[in-house]
Every structure is written in C-alpha cells, then in structure tokens.
C-alpha cells in the first residue's frame, strides 16, 4: 500500500516530541509497578490504605529529585550560559511542583483515615509544603520575565538562594517539632516494611522516575522547539526592529 497515511505526520510529531524508547520503558515500568502494588500484601494495621504509599512516597522522591536537578541545572547555567540548562531547570521545576502537589494530596488522603487528620505539623511535611511554595514562586518569577537570558539568570539565582535556605528551613522546623509535644499518636506505623511491599515500593519509585525523565525531556523538547521557531524567524534577511517604523502616510502630512 503506497497511499499516504493522513496520520503519519501526527505520528512523526509525537515521536519527535515524546521519543520512542522512553515512553515504552515508562509505560512498562508503570504497568509493572502497578501490578506489584496491587499484588503486594495489605498492611496489618492500615489494610488496603497502605497502597497509597506506592504513589505518595515515589511522588515525594521524584519531587526532591526534580528540585535537585533544577538547582544543579541553574548552577550549570550560571557557569556555562547555555540555554539547554535553563530549559532543564524550568522543566524540572514544573515537574517538581506537580509531584510535590501529588505527594501532599496523597499524603492528606492517606493521613485522614490513618491519623484522623488531613494535615499534621510533621517536619518533613512542613518542609515539603514550603518547597512547594518556593517553587511556585520560582515559576511565577519565570512567568514575569520576558527576556530569555534575564529569565534564566534571575531564576537560576533565585533557585540557588532558595534551595540553599532549605536545609535551614528543614532544620528549624525539625527543631520546632521536637521542642513541642511530639506527634506520637500521629506517627505512621513503624516502618518495618515487608519484603513484598519493599519490592513494590522500589518498582514504583523506578516508574515515577521514568515518568519524571519522560516529562522533563518532553517539556525541554517543546521549549527548544519554541525557541528554535523564534530563532528561525530571526536569522536571515528579515527586517530589524527599526524597519517596522515607516514614514507616516496621513494626507495632512503631505
């Protein structure tokens, strides 16, 4: 059959944006992790609810990974000034905010039936929530700047400063908790985690990491394509800014 397939360009675009191997690997990892999570035994105390762990913990892990990537990419941008590092920092921060939100939401859903509250002032929770706000600020800052170089520079600086403060934030919150009454009743069951559960958890972490890499790579490719479009419009013999201004043509001025 040599008739042109009308869906071919769409498929080609999808391949160019998402790639081929990574989506397949991510899908496989998710499927395996999902099976493992469903097949793992229910918790003695929490019953089926423990399966939320397979979303909550990997989401939190991925979020921290994402912020780490943003920090490193920001530093490398300041050093190398290559646009690709800024794209990586931005894409990773976006993914980080998404996964932090997911982790917090899943944590709340999990906390309500097990601890009886949606939210508790555990140091880890507070630090995670603050990271969420810090990177919402980071993304707001990015949106506010038009010029790509200025945006990259300012967001890299803010990313480094904010991240450098995070250990102090975490430490102070930890201290604050230990000096107040400890949340003994609100602690989750001791993390004596069974073999089946551990395997399922590790598989979930792997699946989330693969998803994260896929999301970041896709986002970077889209941003790069956007930038390439701008550049393509720029180079060549196109008019410079001044050529947009021509002599007035009102009758009265003649």
């Amino acid at each position: 059959m040599s008739t042109t397939d009308p869906a071919a360009p769409v498929r080609a675009t999808l391949r160019a944006v998402f790639g081929r191997g990574l989506p397949a690997f991510a899908a496989l990892a998710v499927a395996v992790a999902l099976t493992a999570a469903l097949a793992s035994p229910p918790d003695r105390l929490q019953g089926e609810l423990v399966r939320l762990m397979y979303v909550h913990v990997p989401a939190a892990w991925t979020a921290f990974l994402a912020y780490g990537v943003t920090l490193v990419a920001g530093l490398v941008w300041l050093w190398r000034r290559a646009a690709v590092w800024d794209r990586l920092a931005a894409a990773s921060a976006e993914a980080g905010v998404f996964f932090t939100g997911l982790a917090i939401a899943m944590g709340a859903v999990w906390g309500r039936p097990t601890w009886g509250v949606w939210w508790t002032w555990d140091a880890r929770l507070v630090t995670t929530a603050l990271l969420f706000f810090v990177y919402l600020g980071y993304l707001a800052l990015r949106r506010a700047v038009d010029d790509p170089v200025t945006r990259a520079r300012r967001s890299a600086v803010f990313g480094v400063v904010a991240f450098a403060m995070v250990p102090l934030v975490h430490f102070s919150v930890l201290w604050w908790r230990t000096l107040h009454q400890p949340p003994s009743l609100l602690r989750p069951a001791a993390p004596a985690i069974g073999g089946g559960m551990l395997t399922a958890l590790l598989l979930s972490v792997l699946a989330f990491t693969a998803l994260f890499v896929l999301i970041v790579r896709t986002r970077m490719r889209l941003t790069a394509a956007n930038a390439a479009l701008d550049v393509a419009e720029l180079t060549g013999a196109e008019p410079v800014a001044g050529d947009a201004v021509t002599a007035p043509r009102r009758e009265a001025t003649r």
């Binding site: 706000f133 506010a144 700047v145 000096l179």
Partner: peptide, 30 residues
C-alpha cells in the same frame, strides 16, 4: 533585585521571600 523591573513585583517579591523566612519566624517565636 531578583524581581526588579518586573510586572507584579509588589506581590512576587513577598512570595519569593516569605517561605524562606520560616527559620526567622521559628527562631523569633522560639
């Protein structure tokens, strides 16, 4: 300085600073 010259700076600045001042708050009340 990070938000200098940007639209919405009056709101953006506080959003950028407030979360990282938590240790100051905890120290002062502590």
């Amino acid at each position: 300085l990070v938000s200098e010259g940007l639209a919405g700076r009056a709101v953006l600045g506080p959003l950028l600073v407030a979360p990282i001042t938590v240790p100051l708050l905890l120290g002062a009340t502590g």
